[in-house]
Amino acid sequence: VTTYKLVINGKTLKGETTTKAVDAETAEKAFKQYANDNGVDGVWTYDDATKTFTVTEMV
């Protein structure tokens, strides 16, 4: 189990959260659900070296 981080660069919501998951795919599903629940829709990137997902909403 690995800890993954999500950085949110939203128009109205900004911040970070973490989740523990067995792999990046599982973490991504959890983060996308979290973003969807919070009304964040944007471009996703993932950095495997730092285990960090970033979602950026276009203005």
Rank of each mutant, 00 (worst) to 15 (best):
V22C: 09
N38L: 12
D48N: 08
F31T: 00
T18C: 09
T17M: 13
G10L: 13
G42Y: 03
A35T: 06
T12S: 14
A21H: 03
G39D: 07
T52A: 03
K29I: 10
L6K: 00
Q33T: 11
Y4S: 00
T52M: 04
A21F: 05
D23W: 04
T50N: 07
K20T: 15
V40P: 02
E25N: 10
T17F: 14
A35M: 06
L6W: 02
L13P: 04
Y46D: 00
I8G: 02
T17W: 15
F31M: 03
M58S: 10
A21D: 03
V40S: 02
V40W: 09
Y46C: 01
L6P: 00
G10N: 06
T18P: 02
T50Y: 05
T18H: 10
M58K: 10
V40D: 01
Q33D: 06
E25M: 09
W44N: 00
A35D: 01
A27D: 00
T19M: 14
E16C: 15
M58R: 10
A49T: 11
D41E: 14
K14T: 11
A30S: 08
F53D: 00
T54G: 03
D47Y: 04
N36Y: 14
F31Y: 02
T3N: 07
T2Y: 15
E57K: 03
A21R: 03
N38V: 14
E16I: 10
K5T: 11
M58F: 14
T12G: 09
T17E: 05
T3Q: 09
V7T: 05
V7P: 00
A27Q: 01
V59N: 11
V55C: 06
G15E: 10
N38W: 12
A21M: 03
K11Q: 11
M58A: 13
T26D: 06
K14D: 05
T50Q: 07
T18Q: 09
Y34I: 06
T19V: 12
D41G: 10
T26G: 07
L6S: 01
A27F: 01
V59E: 14
V22N: 11
L13R: 06
T26M: 13
Y4A: 00
T18S: 12
G10T: 15
D48P: 11
D47H: 06
D41A: 13
M58T: 14
I8Y: 08
T26E: 10
A30M: 12
D47N: 09
T26L: 06
A27H: 00
T45H: 10
T2E: 12
E57V: 07
G15C: 12
E28I: 11
A27V: 02
Y34N: 02
T50R: 06
N36P: 01
D47T: 05
T54A: 04
A49V: 11
L13A: 07
A35H: 01
E16N: 06
